[in-house]
Each structure stands twice: as structure tokens, then as C-alpha cells.
């Protein structure tokens, strides 16, 4: 069991970083924290690879590093540059940070209960990490729901994507690398498209606040 300790600790770090993604005020900072989180994710994959001895996980880690820690932040920073100085303005979140923290904690707890209640093909020791990965899905949703800044909503999507990544790695470490590459490129395209849309929206509406987009409604 103790061999999974590092994996679980990294899982804990992962949720802490995603909490900061939700809480951070400006898109710039969010991008940096997201990049940091992706590095934690890479470390987690490496640690999992060492523990399970699965070779594929190292390739996963490498692709994840390129796509998540480098490419996605780069795309986002590029989009921010395109938008210009107004991207630095903080768009208020619709809930207070305290509520956000407690919400994430509650989601984590519920996911743990869910993971605990289900018989799983993998080792018992990774249950905490699995709960964390499942919780990422909800944290991402929380980010999308509570943040009014459309750029941060993109990061919410990225968080969900990271969560599914870890879940896959934990449940099926032996999956062929092709699957992983598919997922990664898929995510990249999604982020590219969303970033382009965000830049376009800003060009038209001159705002990144989702609440200002009411004119788009039919």
C-alpha cells in the first residue's frame, strides 16, 4: 500500500492546484497555476509508472508534459495577448472563495464515498487518488459554473480533462499509448477552438464576462 503513497500525495497536490485555478483572480495567474498543475499531473503519471512498472505511462507522461504543461498554457497566453490589456481585469466570480473551497471539499468527499462504495479492478491503495481524479470532473464543472470569466471557464474544461486523464491512468495503466495521444490532441483542439471563440467574442462584445453575453441568446 505504501508504494502508492507518493501517487496519493501527488493526487492531493493536484486537487490543491485545481482549487487555486478556481480561486485565482486573473487569467494570467490561472494559466501559470494550470501549467503547474499539469507538471504535478506529469509527476503523478511518472510515479504511477514507477509503481506499476507500466512502460506506457512514461510515454503518457511525456505527451502530457508537451500538451498540457507547455502547449495549452502557450495557447492561452497567446489568446490573452491577442485580447490585450483588458484580459488582465479581474471578472468577479459568482460565489465567494470560502464557498468555493468548501464546495470543492464537499465534492471531494462525495467522490470518495462513491469510490469507496464501488468494487474496482485496480489496487485499493489508489482509492484516494481515484477520488481526486473523479472530483476533478466536478471541480472543473464548479469552475465553469461559478466563474463569469470565459477564459477561466476554458480552464474549467481543462480541469475536467485532467481528471479524466488521471482516472484513465489509474484504472487502465496498460492502455496503449495511442489512446492517450488521441485524448491529448482532442483536448488541444478543443482548447484552440475555445480560445479562438473567446478572442472573437472579446472582439465583438469587448468583454470577457459571460453575463455580458446575453445578446447572444436567441
Amino acid at each position: 500500500m505504501t508504494s502508492y503513497l507518493v501517487v496519493n500525495i501527488l493526487g492531493g497536490l493536484l486537487i490543491v492546484t485545481s482549487l487555486f485555478v478556481v480561486l485565482s483572480k486573473t487569467p494570467q495567474r490561472t494559466t501559470l497555476i494550470y501549467s503547474l498543475q499539469s507538471i504535478v499531473l506529469v509527476l503523478l503519471l511518472v510515479a504511477l509508472g514507477v509503481t506499476t512498472g507500466s512502460r506506457e505511462l512514461f510515454t503518457w507522461a511525456a505527451t502530457a508534459f508537451i500538451t498540457k504543461a507547455v502547449l495549452v498554457p502557450a495557447i492561452m497566453l497567446f489568446a490573452l495577448k491577442k485580447i490585450g490589456p483588458s484580459a488582465k481585469e479581474a471578472v468577479p466570480s459568482s460565489i465567494s472563495p470560502v464557498v468555493a473551497i468548501i464546495l470543492v471539499a464537499v465534492e471531494l468527499f462525495v467522490c470518495y464515498l462513491a469510490v469507496n462504495g464501488i468494487e474496482l479492478p485496480t489496487a485499493l491503495g489508489v482509492k484516494p487518488a481515484l477520488a481526486v481524479s473523479l472530483a476533478h470532473f466536478f471541480v472543473g464543472l464548479t469552475c465553469i459554473i461559478t466563474q463569469r470569466n470565459i477564459l477561466k471557464q476554458i480552464f474549467g474544461y481543462c480541469l475536467m480533462e485532467n481528471g479524466s486523464h488521471v482516472t484513465l491512468a489509474l484504472l487502465a495503466p496498460e492502455a496503449p499509448g495511442l489512446v492517450e495521444i488521441g485524448i491529448a490532441t482532442d483536448a488541444i483542439f478543443a482548447v484552440v477552438i475555445m480560445a479562438i471563440v473567446a478572442v472573437r467574442i472579446h472582439r465583438v462584445v469587448k468583454s470577457l464576462d459571460a453575463d455580458d453575453l446575453r445578446e447572444l441568446k436567441g
Binding site: 496519493n8 470560502v98 470543492v104 471539499a105 464537499v106 471531494l108 484516494p128
Partner: peptide
Amino acid sequence: TWAVFGIAVFGFVFWILGI
């Protein structure tokens, strides 16, 4: 102080998770 409480709650959930 409620934010501090939130952090403590977070720690509490982590303890339940066993990390």
C-alpha cells in the same frame, strides 16, 4: 476566518481520503 475554516475543512476531507 471563514476562509481559514474552509482550508481546515479541506484538510479534514484529505484526512478522510487518507492522504
